[in-house]
Nucleic acid binder design. Sequence first.
DNA 1: CTCATGGCGATACACTGTATTTCTCCCTTA
DNA 2: TAAGGGAGAAATACAGTGTATCGCCATGAG
Lengths: 230, 230
Amino acid sequence: MTVWDRPEPPDRPVPLDRERIVAAALSLADEGGLEAVSLRKVAARLNAGPMRLYGYIATKEELFDLLVDEVYAEVLPEERTDEWREALRTLAHRTRRAALRHEWLADLLGGRPTLGPNGLAVAEAMLSALDGLADVDTVMRAVGTVNAYVIGAIRGEIANLRAERATGLSKRDWQRAAGPRLSRALATGAFPALSKAVYDGTDVDPETTFATGLDWVLDAVAAKLTRSSA
Amino acid sequence: MTVWDRPEPPDRPVPLDRERIVAAALSLADEGGLEAVSLRKVAARLNAGPMRLYGYIATKEELFDLLVDEVYAEVLPEERTDEWREALRTLAHRTRRAALRHEWLADLLGGRPTLGPNGLAVAEAMLSALDGLADVDTVMRAVGTVNAYVIGAIRGEIANLRAERATGLSKRDWQRAAGPRLSRALATGAFPALSKAVYDGTDVDPETTFATGLDWVLDAVAAKLTRSSA
DNA sequence: CTCATGGCGATACACTGTATTTCTCCCTTA
DNA sequence: TAAGGGAGAAATACAGTGTATCGCCATGAG
């Protein structure tokens, strides 16, 4: 067998590593959501068989953990902010924007403890922003509360965003008219407060909603900090 | 062919309805988590073929929506509370307890707008608790913020609970010693604030943590209400 | 040159959600 | 009463999934 009729080596097996695997999975997720991420497809992007991946990750769940941590890298601010409130606000908004860039993040956020290096770094950033302003337990509570709000708010925002997209209508029109169940339910008069909210409420853009709620929570934190540090 | 050697009619096809389907799915989810819910298994519990279900639900996602709404029925309090703060607190705690009874709820909470009758009723209850205490937009913000906290907090609590169970260790021991990544990361000294929190923080039970954070958020709401109603 | 070894691809398995086809039984009509 | 039709259930089918196992082949050592 001569060299030119050799069956054309179909891409010499490139060495793999977690980074390349995560990058492939991330692009798949960004393009088609979490459900578009299958080990076969990830492996295919790397010219490898599905089983190759198991040399680097133990399970698909672990791959998801790595994905989340990869995005947490985008959350970390480039420079440290001294003012605790501004620091927390920045982290929250950066998390939100990361979730808007990678919508699938909403499905994973808060789903399991974030133990990757970047997730830990984000936790460290939040904790250190409050360090010294109150006793340890209060600081932990504060971080936990802010985190809970951020995760819940982001989930909700993305859920609405998807619902709007699915119906192709603006949020307002969707609430008002389309949603068959909702409009019928409201018409029964069984939900007066809900009706009032839907019909009389002004709809503000999601960013402002997020920011306002966040400020409320930060207000609450501020109150506890002063009380505890005084 | 005589009557006794007839091949034994294998359970005359019982008529189905959404209620029975949801009940079967719910028990499966309670026993084995969301991933134990497959249309085949649900159908099997009802002595039916998988395709039968499609006469009552359009897709598996819709079944999940029904599941969530079923649990929201458990969240609705039996009697109305007049004091807004107590009303919101009750709803939040009832949601949390429902999630502890049905851990899979944490995976679904906030994942999509809750448009089922019970979900709407819960929303109505929250909104009506605040009705008249502030302008519509403030009320909506308040409900949204509290909801975001509740969802995020529940998700986090269940995530921790699962992590503990997976390692079989108490939360404290797990944080301190086991988690291989965590302990190594902390040992590097790169996360001083995190280390302090893990080592010096007292661990309180999850219910108290939830209640405290909730109170903070409710404090924030109270502040906005008085300002806006004054 | 031979042999062992380790990594890789192929194969296999049990299972998933769902589309489509086939069958069966009951009701209507002649 | 016999035949035809229609609905609803069941069986089959398909394209995919995560992951366990097996067998090969190339590359190292002796």
